[in-house]
Nucleic acid binder design. Sequence first.
DNA 1: TATTGTTATACTCTATAACTATA
DNA 2: TATAGTTATAGAGTATAACAATA
Lengths: 149, 149
Amino acid sequence: MSDTLDTRYLETLQGYNTRRAALSIINTFMQRMAAYALSPVDFSILSLIHHNPGVTSRQLCDALGLLPPNMVVFLKQFEKRHWLTKSPHPTDGRAMALALTAEGTQLMKKAEKAASASDLSATSQLTPKEQETLARLLKKIYLKPTPAP
Amino acid sequence: MSDTLDTRYLETLQGYNTRRAALSIINTFMQRMAAYALSPVDFSILSLIHHNPGVTSRQLCDALGLLPPNMVVFLKQFEKRHWLTKSPHPTDGRAMALALTAEGTQLMKKAEKAASASDLSATSQLTPKEQETLARLLKKIYLKPTPAP
DNA sequence: TATTGTTATACTCTATAACTATA
DNA sequence: TATAGTTATAGAGTATAACAATA
C-alpha cells in the first residue's frame, strides 16, 4: 500500500512548500547537531548573543519573533549550562545585558561551523547560484513590513 | 530601545531563512483563515482527502510527515465537525477509506480559494517568475531522497 | 511476522494574564 | 503611563510505547 497521492494543489501553495523545506532542513540540523544538544531556536538565540554581546532579552524576542515569557525559559537553561552571563544594563535599570561566557563562546564557534555544514548538506541539491537566489527570495517574504492590524 | 541587531550570520543559513519565511506565510494564513477555524495542518489534511477520496490514514501520514497517533486526533475532530466519513476499505480490512461529506466538500471549495488568496498575499513581493523559481528550489530541497539511517 | 488504526501519555513549543521594578 | 523582565499556566504540536484486528 504505497499509492502516491495527488498533492498537486498543496504544491501550488508557497506556505506548504516553504514549511516542508524548513522541516527537511531542521531534521538534518537536529541529526547533525545532536552532539551539542541545541535545538534550532537554542542555536539562533545563542548565535545572536555571540554576535551581539550586551543585547537585551527584548531585542532577542523582537529579532526572532519569540515571546518574552518563553525567552526567560531559554535564558535560564543557558545559565544553568554555564554558557550565559547577565549583567546590569549600562543605561536601562530594568534591562539585563546578555553575553556568552568563555565556555559559551568556545561552544558557539564550533556549533556555528557545524550548523553551516549541516545547512549546506541539507540544501546540497542547489547550485551556489540557486542558494543565493533562494536566500534572496525568502528574505523578500519575511522582511516585508507587517500589515497594520 | 530599538537598536537593530547583527543578524548577518543567521541569514547565511537557509534553515533560518526558510523557517522565518514559513512563519511569515503561516501568520498570514491564520489571520485570513480565521473564519474557517482551520490550522495549516487541518487544512492540508482536509485538502488531501478532498483531492484523494478513499485515501487511508496511513497514506495521509506518509504524505504530510505526521505520525499515526496524531492523525487519529485530527480525524476525530473532523468527524465531530461533520466534514469527514469513514468507510470500510474495499481491499484492506484493517484500513478505513476516508472521504469528505457534502458539507466538508463545500467547505474545502471555499477554503482552498481563501488559502490560495492568502498565500498570494503573503508572497506578493515576488513576481510570478520569482514565485515559480521559489517553488522549484523549495521542492528540490524537500523532495530529495532521505539519507539512510 | 508485519501493518493499520488506536489509546494513553509525555515532551516541546507557543500563547495569555498578571505581577514587579524601572523609565 | 509605558516598558523590561518575570511567574504561572494553558494550549497546540509532536513523540514513544503498547495494544487489537487484519494482512
